[in-house]
Structure formats: C-alpha cells, structure tokens
C-alpha cells in the first residue's frame, strides 16, 4: 500500500472537518458584515474582520488536506468507477474544485478588503457599499456550502 492510500482516509476526515469549519466561519463573517451596516455596528464590523482573518486559513487547510486525498481519489474512485458509472458526479466534483479555488481567493481578498477599506466609516452612511460587501460575503458562504454539499454527496456514493 502506497502512502497515498495510507493517509487517504485520515486526510478525508480532516478535509471534512476543515471544510465544515470554513463554512461555519464564513457564515459568521456574513452575519457580522450584515449587522455591521447599522449605525451602532462598529464592534460587529471588528468581529467580521476577525472572523475573515481565520476564514482563509481554514480554506487553505481544507485545500491542503483535499490535495493529499486527491491522488487516491483520482485513481481509486474517479478513474476506476466514477467516470464510467456516474459522469455527472465527476462534473459536480470538478465544479466543487473550481468553486473552492475561487472561494479561497475570495476569502483572502475579503479579509484584506475588510482590513483596508475602513468599513466602519462608510458602511453606516452608504448602503450601496454595505449591500455590495454583504453580497460578496454571501458568495463566499455559497462557495463553501457548495463544496461541503458536493463533497458529502460524492463520499456517500463512492469514497476512497
């Protein structure tokens, strides 16, 4: 048994934990960005920045553990069974991979953005800014949620 197969299942478990963590933390970012649009939301905006600061490391952890599972998945699941029997699941898995990469960039960008854009001064006075920031954070939550759901779906059908 090669190292890919030895570590595949423990890494899959860690991948699930970090993926769920990324989803949960990004929901917290959305919650506090949304509340931070109010006049009294300075503390909540600070909380949003804090949660955004740990969202992207959770994403990175999910991506690293996922990359360690990938060789076993590619050979033992995808090429051995999924492509021939359930090609639409391969498609959904590829969508998950793309959206995960976009979500990682978005998570890092959103953190930098929340740190640098002084939202406390602008958000309460400018609803355009606040709505745009909320939608951007909602997209991050959608990316993470799609990753979790498709990942669980594939694992339920065929796992490493």
């Amino acid at each position: 048994m090669t190292w890919e197969w030895t570590i595949a299942r423990p890494m899959l478990l860690l991948h699930a934990v970090t993926g769920f963590a990324a989803l949960a933390i990004s929901i917290h970012v959305l919650y506090f960005v949304w509340l931070g649009g109010r006049n009294s939301g300075a503390a909540r905006r600070a909380r949003a920045r804090w949660y955004a600061a740990i969202t992207w490391p959770a994403y990175v952890a999910a991506m690293v553990t996922g990359a360690l599972v990938y060789p076993a998945y590619k050979v033992g699941v995808r090429e051995a069974w999924l492509d021939a029997n359930r090609p639409e699941l391969t498609g959904f898995f590829e969508i998950k991979e793309h959206w995960g990469a976009i979500g990682l960039l978005l998570a890092w960008g959103l953190w930098r953005y929340l740190c640098r854009s002084a939202p406390g001064e602008i958000a309460s006075a400018d609803r355009t800014f606040w709505r745009g920031q909320s939608i951007l954070t909602l997209l991050l939550v959608i990316c993470a949620a799609v990753n979790v759901v498709i990942g669980l779906w594939v694992v339920m059908v065929r796992s490493v």
Partner: peptide, 17 residues
C-alpha cells in the same frame, strides 16, 4: 473603490463561478 469595489468584485466572482 471603497463604494463600488464590492459590487465589481462580486460581479467578477459570480461570472467566474
């Protein structure tokens, strides 16, 4: 960019998704 930046970024991300 502080005001319209999130909308431009959200549009780009949505297009990429």
């Amino acid at each position: 960019w502080q005001r319209l930046g999130p909308w431009i970024a959200a549009g780009g991300v949505l297009f990429a998704l």
